[in-house]
Design a protein around this nucleic acid. Sequence first.
DNA 1: ATATAGTTCAAACGATCGTTTGATTGAAGA
DNA 2: TCTTCAATCAAACGATCGTTTGAACTATAT
Lengths: 189, 189
Amino acid sequence: MAAERLFVDQGFAATSLRAIAEAAKVNLAAAHYHFGSKQGLLAATLHARATPVNECRLAALDRLEAPGAQLNVTAVIEAYFQPFTQCELDQSLPRIIGRIAGEPQALIRPLLEREFKPVTDRFIRVLQRLLPYLTEEDLQWRFHFVIGAMIHLLAHSTPLGLTKSDRKTAIQAFQRLQQFVVAGLTSPV
Amino acid sequence: MAAERLFVDQGFAATSLRAIAEAAKVNLAAAHYHFGSKQGLLAATLHARATPVNECRLAALDRLEAPGAQLNVTAVIEAYFQPFTQCELDQSLPRIIGRIAGEPQALIRPLLEREFKPVTDRFIRVLQRLLPYLTEEDLQWRFHFVIGAMIHLLAHSTPLGLTKSDRKTAIQAFQRLQQFVVAGLTSPV
DNA sequence: ATATAGTTCAAACGATCGTTTGATTGAAGA
DNA sequence: TCTTCAATCAAACGATCGTTTGAACTATAT
C-alpha cells in the first residue's frame, strides 16, 4: 500500500488523499469509493498490517505454551517482538505500526485498541502466571512501559546520536530492547 | 498558552492557526506577526516548555553531583523525571512534551534535538560513569528505551485498561516507570 | 443482445488552510 | 505637536483539503 509510506512520513492529518492516490496511481474518487473516507483508508491500512502482527504473535505464543517448551518472561517478550525481528517481513511494517500508535488524534485510539488489545491482553495474562508476585495493576503498568519503548523504537529506529539503520542493526536493537524490558518486567517490587 | 491544548489534543498538522487564535482570543494576523509562521508558533510553544524542564533537570543533577550526595542510577533517573513529578508544575507540561515528541513530521525532530539533546547527553555521560561495564552504544540504546517509555507515559497517562488519571496516580506512575527503567539500565550485558 | 451492478474517472463542490495585504491604532521620541 | 514604528485588525489571497457528482466503462447474468 502506498498510503503507508505517506502516513508514516508525514502523519495522518498532514497526508492528503490526493497524494496517496497519486502515489498509488489510482483515481482519487476510486480510493474514496473503496474506503469510504480518509479515516476508513487509515483503518484499512492499519488492519492490513495489524492482522499478520497479531497472528505472528499468537503463533509464537502458542509454540511457547506447547508442552515441553521453555515458558519464561524472555521467551514471551521474544514472541511479542517476533513480528519485527523476523527477517521475512518487510521493513515498512514496524514503521507504520510505530507511527500510527503515536498519532495524536483521538479518533485513532479506538482503532489501535480494537486491533491490538485482545492479543496484548493475552500476553499480559501469560506474564501474570510467570510473575505471580506482581499485582495485575503492577503488570499493566510495566507492560505499558514495554509498549512505549517498543513504539519509540519502531518510530525512531535509532537514538538521536546514532544514524545507521539497516536491517541487521534493527534486529540487534530489538535484542537490546528485549533485554531491557525483561529486566524491567522482572524487577522485584 | 492556548496553542498547547490544541496541539496536544489534535496534533500539529490538524490544529489550525485560526482555532488557536480564537482560543487565545487574539487576532489571527497578530499571531502570525509575532511567531512568523505556524511552525514558529510550535517552536515557541515547545521552547517555552522545554526551558524549565531542562533547568529543573540540570538543577537536580547538580544537586546530585554536589559532594556528599548519593550518586547512583536511581537518583539520576529521578533527576531526569523530576520535571514531571514535582507537584508545583502544572499538569499540561507533561502532555505537551509527550505529544510533540511523538509528532510525525520530520520538521519537528530538529526542534526536539535542539531543545533536549544537550541536557540528555549530559545525563548519559553521568550514567556512563555509574555503569562503566556498558559501552557508549549500549547506554545510548538503553537511554533511547528510557525516553520511549517516558514519552509514552507522558502522552498516554494510563494503560489502555486503566482509566483513572489524577495527579497522585500520575506521580505513582512515574515511580513505577523509574523502577522499571533503572532495572533495564542496570541489567548486566 | 440487453439489462444490471460494480467500478473508474474528470470535474467540481464548499470549506478551510497558512499566509499576506494595507489600513488603523497607540504610545514613545524628537 | 508631529513623527515614527511596532502592534493589531478585517479582509482577502491562492492553494489545497475531503468529499460528491454524474457520466463512462466493464463484466457478468438473463
